[in-house]
């Protein structure tokens, strides 16, 4: 098998050990389908709300402020945070 040139790195996800954390995070955090929801999670003691592509994580306080500025239509399950 030929050796890759020095300025070329080949990292197969099947071999896994060549992949960096950055490779993985770049994919799982930046790529894929998003369904907007209003789930609140806690990260390092701070309540965060997951709202979709534009603002993936924002503090509940900020979200509530934004919601007051742009209230969701009645019955909508979506947070209107644009």
């Amino acid at each position: 098998m030929a050796e890759a040139a020095e300025n070329l790195v080949i990292a197969s996800t099947e071999a896994n050990d060549d992949l960096t954390l950055l490779d993985v995070l770049d994919h799982v955090l930046n790529k894929g389908v998003v369904i907007r929801g209003k789930i609140v999670i806690s990260l390092a003691g701070v309540d965060l709300v997951y709202v979709g592509l534009d603002v993936l994580l924002t503090s509940v306080e900020t979200a509530l402020q934004q919601l007051q500025l742009n209230p969701s239509p009645q019955g909508s399950k979506r947070a209107q945070l644009r």
Binding site: A2, A5, L8, V9, I10, T13, E14, L19, H27, G32
Partner: peptide
């Protein structure tokens, strides 16, 4: 890819397979 030659000013990183 292992036989690929890249310009010396550059670095190339090949990853996959991904969805």
């Amino acid at each position: 890819f292992r036989e690929l030659k890249i310009a010396s000013e550059l670095q190339a990183r090949v990853t996959g397979p991904w969805p």
